[in-house]
Design a protein around this nucleic acid. Structure first.
Length: 313
DNA sequence: TCCCAGGTCCTAC
DNA sequence: GTAGGACCTGGG
């Protein structure tokens, strides 16, 4: 059994896995300590605060060494990110300070770009439980079966497998109007016309522009928000700052003055592409190079606060 | 039953 | 450049 110790790492699995950056982790109870089960790079793994353990693997992975396993998950959990050092780069403001304190140990993952891109295209106009359900159905229908613990679990489908899916296949997975986007992207990647791995070394702005123009230019589901999510959660461009409805609400309520937003966001429920870029630029200037990390903590806090207030009413 | 969802695209102006 | 509406359909 392959195991990687996480005891030296500042890491909170609950905050990391429920922060909307990934959709395939499930909580499983294990005595007093909660564990999480997920599928990453052909491994089924059980994760606790202190270790990550393989509990099943695909044929491709069955021959791999403990060294490979550790390398994969060091990358996945972004081991090189020193959270305390990153926290130290942020401006001193109370809302962010509270968020950092409340969600300490939330890490930004470095996920597979293919899975991340499809997941966030599926996220368009959906809530998190519905997104998770779509990804689960796509995996069960088109992914590889991996035996693990007491039941089979499916890996995320390969591009070639998903490229063969018909409109009806995708609609059966509750993908809805996003089926065109998923099918187009799968065909682009499967044919090699879109090489997601080759984009790793691109600078953030270049990467983002490429994702938007190559995909959205053909009107296939990748706008600024999805491109920022993929840049941050798969390519680990920590200067990306995805602006969704929650972050927009947060900036309006707490950062209009601090970020010199003036009247830019007054009465706004959404952003035009030009405005998105302006607000993004101001966020980068205010929060700094690691604004992607700040965004994720703000997202957690504004959601929790809003839900709490709604329940109180 | 109804509203809304980690947006994007299209059309008209 | 931008506003406004359409988009599938499952959760809450």
């Amino acid at each position: 059994m392959q195991t990687l110790s996480l005891s030296e790492l500042s890491f909170n699995p609950e905050y990391t896995f429920t922060s909307g950056q990934t959709f395939r982790w499930r909580r499983i109870s294990k005595g007093v300590e909660t564990a999480w089960l997920g599928v990453v790079s052909g491994y089924v793994v059980k994760v606790t605060k202190n270790e990550i353990q393989s509990v099943g693997s695909s044929e491709l992975r069955s021959q791999s060494t403990a060294f490979d396993f550790c390398e994969i998950f060091r990358t996945y959990l972004s081991f090189e990110d020193d959270l305390n050092a990153i926290y130290g780069t942020f401006p001193k403001d109370k809302f962010l300070f509270d968020a950092l304190k409340q969600y300490k140990g939330l890490r930004i993952l470095t996920q597979d770009p293919w899975e991340c891109l499809v997941s966030f295209v599926c996220s368009i106009n959906k809530n998190i439980p519905a997104i998770a359900s779509m990804i689960e159905l796509l995996s069960n229908r088109f992914g590889d079966k991996i035996m693990s613990l007491d039941r089979p679990i499916h890996s995320f489908p390969s591009p070639s497998r998903l490229a063969q899916a018909t409109k009806n296949d995708l609609l059966n997975c509750k993908v809805g109007f996003r089926w065109r986007f998923v099918q187009f992207i799968a065909k682009q990647v499967a044919s090699g016309r879109l090489d997601l791995d080759s984009l790793r070394n691109n600078a953030y702005q270049e990467l983002r522009k490429y994702l938007i123009s190559e995909l959205s230019g053909n009107t296939f589901g990748v706008g600024p928000k999805v491109a920022d999510c993929v840049s941050l959660f798969a390519y680990h461009k920590r200067e990306a700052f995805p602006i969704d409805v929650w972050i927009l609400r947060c900036l309006k309520n707490y950062y209009a003055r601090k970020m010199s937003l003036g009247n830019l966001l007054i009465d706004r429920q959404s952003l035009t592409p030009r405005l998105y870029n302006i607000v993004h630029d101001k966020a980068f200037r205010y929060f700094g190079h690691y604004c992607g990390y700040a965004q994720q903590y703000l997202y957690m806090k504004i959601r929790a606060d809003t839900i709490r207030n709604t329940m109180r009413v």
